[in-house]
Design a binder for these strands. Structure first.
Lengths: 120, 120
DNA sequence: ATTTGTAGTTACCTCGCAGTAACCAGAATC
DNA sequence: GATTCTGGTTACTGCGAGGTAACTACAAAT
């Protein structure tokens, strides 16, 4: 999932792509945004991702310092996820990508709803 | 390579990830930058990519309007690639990603050389 | 006549990403 | 005592991304 050879590159862009350059991570970061969110919410909000893959992605994001995980010792379990400073700093880049896409793609829907319309 | 379900999303970020969100395309766009470049140059400059995959990626980038392909009717063949307006508009985003990565990753090399050090 | 150079294409094969379904703990509710 | 709720984990499986190697056209150089 992470590309080790990319992460070992001497090019900073290549290293960045090696860590966050897969299809789910930018989506997850975008969905979390500035809020605190629980695992089950992410699972139900993000379309088409499986629990297993979501777990893996969250673990890697945490390892790479983009995400903070808060597990409460309760039963049934409760776990909160929120972006770290590093993760929050990535949000503007995602906004730029959205703007870039809206500006240049062949027009589809005139009005975007983005975050809201993730439901499965 | 392109993710059709992502491209059909009603979220602009998801659609963007569906088209440029794989490991090679950002790298290719970064390597081309503002210059005109030939297929053989890309093949020798970008590490670890195979001719086959490079061809596929270039074709998709052209189809998605990021890239212009100029084939001269010569023998041996000559083909020039350069970024379109849309492709050029993506370069600042890649620069932001580089800056973000340099700022937050666990420090490796103090001075980056990026584009220069792609040799196989 | 053979080699070289360019930009691919094709057939073949393998590895691993990712999907599905079942299962876990243990308290609380019915 | 059975079900529910949460946040996962595990085993099994399949598909497809992507690698390798061989091959193409045709002109010019040796």
């Amino acid at each position: 999932m992470r590309d080790e050879r990319f992460c070992a590159s001497n090019c900073s862009l290549t290293r960045a792509i090696g860590t966050i350059g897969n299809k789910w991570k930018p989506i997850i970061i975008n969905v979390i945004g500035t809020r605190t969110i629980r695992f089950g919410q992410l699972d139900s909000i993000i379309p088409l991702i499986s629990r297993k893959v979501l777990t893996e992605q969250l673990k890697e994001l945490e390892e790479d310092g983009l995400l903070e995980r808060l597990a409460y010792k309760e039963l049934p379990p409760r776990v909160d996820y929120k972006l770290s400073e590093k993760g929050l700093a990535f949000l503007p880049i995602l906004e730029n990508i959205k703007e870039w896409n809206c500006k240049y793609e062949v027009a589809l829907t005139p009005k975007e709803t983005d975050r809201i319309t993730y439901a499965k």
